[in-house]
């Protein structure tokens, strides 16, 4: 673990002044400290931003919900308005990591989470994301956990966040603040595809700070479901996950939102599948067709071909359970708090 300077930011402006390529902001620290210990991240300076006043959750006049960057994953998952209006987000948050990590991790930190690709995490391996131009050991290595969608010749690392999959389905806007002031970025545009620059992961300048995340107004009335599939029942990254929201008119889908996790290089909105669902009856055949469309462009490697089928299964089941929730007229029961995955899928 390399030496670094440590300081505490007293204001957002003060923090942004510190920001440069050599500086890391620390909030929860769950990604940063992990990767610094592995010598994967090597900041010369760490700025503690926990004292910044970014911990509020507020309802905006237009119905959107603004979440401070430092709201922890736990607090966000249990926030009454999130549980009521965005149960999908609550479920996704609680499906991620462990209690301890959720207590530490923040909203902005989760947006900035980095891949779990073992070759990225091992400085003895070739990785274009960690060391541009060094190659990609994952492509022909053990790539069970790797991406089917959004990959490139240079990188097939999966974006690991659960929260972000829900956000992709819900829609959100990030507020970024830097020396030249505040700007807003749509969530969908924040994370980048790897292309030939996998080391550039997001649209955040080194001297900028995420200050808030604003959720789009809730899709209502709708049913939603977040389903995460993995080897064990908890505390594991997704092999495939699906976030689904459906608005129904009787048996007919009027609006669908679908996003995927565990299978893509960024939080993956399945827009074409959504379009194909609109106007269709909320039945298995529609869900299966949507799943086929969502995975149509999948590019599996040696060990992750099974995730094409697994992701389809996640989609079909998440859509089914979202439709059931919609038909019940509520998905309050699906907030997933304290549920093992055995219960997760039971609508």
């Amino acid at each position: 673990m390399r030496a670094f300077d440590f300081s505490r930011a007293e204001s957002v402006g003060n923090a942004a002044q510190h920001g440069n390529a050599e500086t890391a902001f620390v909030a929860g620290g769950t990604t940063l400290l992990d990767l610094v210990k592995l010598d994967v991240m090597r900041p010369a300076a760490v700025v503690d931003i926990n004292a910044l006043p970014l911990k509020a959750v507020e309802r905006l006049a237009d119905g959107r919900l603004k979440i401070g960057a430092l709201v922890t994953n736990t607090d966000l998952a249990h926030h009454p308005e999130v549980k009521r209006d965005y149960p999908l987000l609550s479920q996704a948050l609680l499906a991620g990591a462990s209690t301890q990590l959720r207590n530490m991790a923040t909203t902005a930190g989760n947006l900035m989470q980095r891949t779990r690709c073992p070759y990225f995490r091992d400085v003895g391996s070739a990785c274009n994301k960690r060391q541009p131009g060094s190659g990609c050991d994952a492509r022909d290595g053990i790539n069970r956990m790797h991406a089917l969608l959004g990959g490139s010749a240079d990188c097939i690392a999966v974006h690991p966040s659960d929260m972000c999959v829900a956000l992709a389905a819900i829609g959100a806007t990030l507020t970024l603040e830097g020396p030249s002031g505040e700007r807003e970025v749509a969530f969908a545009d924040f994370h980048r595809l790897p292309g030939d620059t996998p080391h550039l992961e997001h649209d955040l300048a080194a001297d900028e700070l995420i200050t808030a995340l604003t959720l789009d107004a809730p899709l209502a009335p709708a049913g939603s479901h977040y389903l995460k599939l993995r080897d064990r029942a908890s505390y594991e990254f997704a092999l495939a996950s699906a976030a689904a929201q459906l608005k129904l008119d009787g048996e007919r889908i009027t609006e669908a939102r679908l996003a995927l996790g565990g299978v893509a290089t960024k939080p993956w909105r399945a827009s074409e599948a959504e379009a194909a669902l609109a106007g269709q009856p909320a039945v298995l055949e529609s869900f299966e067709r949507a799943a086929e469309i969502a995975l149509r462009d999948a590019q599996p490697r040696a060990h992750n071909a099974f995730k094409v089928d697994l992701a389809k299964q996640a989609i079909v089941r998440a859509l089914r359970d979202a439709s059931r929730a919609a038909q019940r007229g509520t998905d309050q029961d699906d907030t997933g708090q304290g549920r093992t995955d055995t219960q997760e899928s039971q609508a």
């Binding site: 462990s98 209690t99 908890s234």
Partner: peptide, 9 residues
């Protein structure tokens, strides 16, 4: 079930 999930870390 809730306790087991919360303790899984």
């Amino acid at each position: 079930a809730a306790v087991k999930e919360a303790m899984s870390g």
